[in-house]
């Protein structure tokens, strides 16, 4: 009996190799390596200050790492080193190939323009000039994220926190990126709003074939949304694997502590 493995895997979307970020004296994250395939959802958990936001910022090309590399495979099939491409190209990739959903919706929205304009912005920068089509797409997305379409001309500053979070998601996903980075997308929301948002994210991920790296402190969210899980502590990866393996049969003392601290996941 042989355990041969068919080589029918698609090429990876994201290859992260030894990613390290030092702040003056602090370690942000250290020696993080993983691979993400198209359509996969990777959960990222760890205590406060363990480097999750730092890692996301490096992955998304917003922060320059001290060492290591992030390689991304574009729709055109080119593999680019996110931190070595020229700045204009990186900006283009950040708008078209991936998106970042900030933990605080206000960081990811333009508060001085309407909800419709927030959603339409990426379409405009991608070259769409037909006002009617942009508005129609914005309306579709408002419906998809369960915001009353009548609010299209209202500014997001008049929205509740949960609505702002959903608007940020619509704004990020409108031009169908391959990958989305999400930093605590359900943080700070009340439980019923969280459930709706989770259901929405689940559907978007499966309908759009979206890949995601999802930072959260909520192990229930991780169980629901992510295929694989990385556990970080003090900037380093202490455990990684299939989500249910890591949660049901945790090996590292820190992961066991994390899992045993919640009632039931």
């Amino acid at each position: 009996m042989t355990a041969t493995m068919p080589i029918n895997d698609p090429p990876p979307l994201l290859t992260v190799d030894g990613l390290t970020k030092h702040y003056d004296r602090h370690v942000g994250c250290a020696a993080v390596s993983f691979t993400l395939w198209p359509g996969e959802v990777l959960g990222l958990v760890g205590e406060s200050g363990s480097g999750k936001t730092t890692l996301l910022a490096c992955l998304a090309g917003r922060l320059t790492p001290s060492a290591g590399a992030v390689r991304f495979r574009t729709r055109a099939g080119a593999v680019v080193d996110v931190h070595r491409v020229a700045e204009p190209e990186r900006r283009r990739l950040m708008r078209t190939e991936w998106g970042l959903v900030h933990q605080t919706p206000r960081d990811g929205l333009r508060l001085d323009v309407s909800a419709g304009a927030n959603i339409g912005e990426r379409l405009l920068t991608a070259g769409e000039r037909h006002y009617g089509r942009i508005r129609a797409t914005a309306l579709d997305w408002l419906a998809a994220v369960e915001i009353d379409q009548a609010r299209i001309d209202h500014r997001p500053s008049t929205f509740s926190g949960g609505m702002q979070q959903r608007l940020q998601i619509a704004r990020t996903l409108v031009n169908r990126p391959q990958l989305v980075y999400m930093d605590e997308p359900t943080g700070g929301l009340d439980v019923s709003v969280q459930a709706r948002l989770l259901d929405l994210l689940r559907r978007l991920v499966s309908d759009l074939g979206l890949a995601a790296v999802l930072v959260t402190h909520d192990l229930g969210v991780v169980r629901l949304l992510s295929d694989r899980l990385i556990v970080m502590r003090a900037g380093r990866v202490v455990e990684a694997g299939l989500t249910d393996q890591v949660l049901d049969d945790p090996q590292h003392p820190y992961t066991q502590l994390l899992v045993s601290s919640v009632l039931s996941v």
């Binding site: 355990a3 895997d9 299939l242």
Partner: peptide, 26 residues
């Protein structure tokens, strides 16, 4: 779902055998 400490678990998958103990998550 649980990770074995030793041994192998060969599963007939399609026309092949996959060892669950060492197979990558995907």
């Amino acid at each position: 779902n649980y990770r074995a400490d030793a041994g192998r678990i060969a599963v007939r998958h399609r026309d092949d055998w996959v060892d669950l103990v060492t197979a990558p998550p995907r």
